[in-house]
Amino acid sequence: MTVLIAVTLGGSLVALVLGAAGHRRVGWSALVGEVVMLAAMADVHLPALGLVPAPFWAVLLGGCAMVTALVDRVRRPSRPQGDHLHALGMLLGAVFVLLGTVHADAAGHHHGGALLLPIAVAVAVHVGAVVWGVGRRRAARVESVRRIASLVGVLAMGAMVAVH
């Protein structure tokens, strides 16, 4: 579990640093969303923290995802550059934050396939879209690494929920 926490926080931190370094390509809303994602991951998953309730983080991440997708759509209506994929990652992060706290609150409780199947499909679609977007276009290397680092952080967060 410690390795997954380190991978989750590391992936999110790398995505944040690379997004800030290439600020001309990454919108401010995606950077704010990345900061919120990093704070939520740290607060929910580090045992010593837990300062803010997980539902608050989930709502905040959902709001950041909607603003990021909207800003990306308004800024580049004919060809969005990937912030909408980051928004999907934030939504998945919000789901993982909630599921992680449900697992912690109800030890031994297992979710049925009815709940996990749509989440697994959403994760698979997100992974496919990020890989397709990075492989299909000639995106800048920094941007490609940022997208992959963000994806790794979200996947590790999902793995923590699955293992928990």
Rank of each mutant, 00 (worst) to 15 (best):
G19H: 00
A94D: 14
L38R: 01
E34H: 13
H86M: 10
V123H: 04
P55V: 07
V35R: 00
A139T: 11
H126I: 00
A94G: 14
V74K: 09
V67T: 02
A30F: 01
V52P: 03
L51I: 02
H86V: 13
V32K: 01
A54L: 00
A120S: 06
V74C: 04
V44F: 11
W132Q: 07
V17K: 05
L115N: 02
V52S: 03
L88R: 03
V131R: 15
G100S: 13
S144Y: 03
W132V: 06
V130L: 07
R25Y: 04
S12L: 15
V52W: 03
A120H: 09
M41A: 11
S12H: 07
S29Y: 03
L151Q: 01
V26S: 06
L4P: 04
L117K: 04
H109I: 00
A114F: 11
L9M: 09
S78N: 09
V3I: 15
A20W: 06
V130K: 03
A162F: 13
L49C: 09
L46F: 13
L92V: 02
A20L: 12
V127H: 04
M160E: 11
C64N: 01
V26D: 10
A129E: 01
T8A: 05
A124M: 01
L155Y: 07
E143P: 00
A39Q: 10
A87G: 12
V95K: 12
H84F: 05
V52Q: 04
F96W: 05
V44M: 08
G113M: 14
A107L: 04
F56L: 14
V127L: 07
A114T: 05
C64L: 02
F96C: 08
L60W: 06
L116M: 14
I5Y: 15
M157P: 09
M1Q: 10
V14S: 02
L98A: 04
V127S: 03
R147Q: 10
G112K: 13
V26K: 06
R79C: 09
G158E: 02
V130Y: 10
V127F: 07
A122T: 00
G63I: 02
R136F: 11
T2D: 12
M157W: 13
L46M: 12
L31T: 06
V71H: 13
V130P: 05
V145Y: 07
V14D: 04
A114V: 11
E34F: 10
R147E: 01
L13N: 09
A6Q: 06
L70Y: 10
A48W: 07
D72R: 10
G19L: 00
F96E: 05
A21S: 11
V71E: 11
V44K: 05
L116I: 14
L117V: 01
G112R: 12
H23L: 08
V71G: 06
G82M: 02
R76T: 03
L115S: 13
I119C: 08
P77Y: 06
R146C: 02
L91M: 13
